[in-house]
Simulated scan of single mutants.
Amino acid sequence: MFGDVCSLSRHVTHPGTWAEGRLSGGLEFRYLGAHPLAEDNSIQSNGYNEWNLTLDYRLENGFRFGESSLRRCATAALSETMRQRP
């Protein structure tokens, strides 16, 4: 059903003395290739990829807070296909 699918990620914890293992972060890349958007395969997506970046800090009492940045890179081919459809 789906074409190419890929997900790669890396999560690390900072071992430094000032953070004592409480600072961590991650980077993830995901790719979803071409796939049908309708059951009869009349509309096809060109796929997309995205990058996700996270940064977390854990306090001594165990409370954790963080920030995430998500960047999705999609193609404009779907909107063009929808315009051409009768």
Rank of each mutant, 00 (worst) to 15 (best):
T81Y: 02
L37I: 02
E50T: 01
E67G: 12
T75Y: 08
S7V: 14
Q84E: 11
F29V: 12
P15S: 14
W18A: 09
S79T: 01
S7G: 11
G21Q: 13
T81P: 01
W51I: 09
H14E: 13
V5H: 11
G3H: 06
F63Q: 06
S42F: 02
T75E: 09
H14F: 14
L55E: 04
S42K: 06
R64M: 10
T54L: 02
L78W: 00
S24Q: 06
T17G: 07
L32W: 06
E80G: 04
P15G: 15
Y48G: 05
I43M: 06
L55T: 12
E67W: 13
L37M: 10
G3C: 08
T54E: 06
H11L: 10
R71I: 15
C73L: 10
M1N: 12
R72M: 11
P86A: 15
G26A: 13
A76N: 11
A76K: 05
G25V: 05
G21D: 13
E39T: 06
W51Q: 07
M1Q: 13
L23C: 09
F29P: 03
R85T: 08
V5I: 15
V12P: 00
G47M: 04
Q84G: 14
G21H: 14
L78S: 01
S9G: 15
D40A: 07
L23P: 03
R10M: 08
G25I: 03
L59Y: 11
L37T: 02
R72V: 15
Y57D: 02
L55W: 05
G25A: 08
S42T: 13
F29Q: 12
S24H: 07
F65G: 14
N46R: 03
T75R: 08
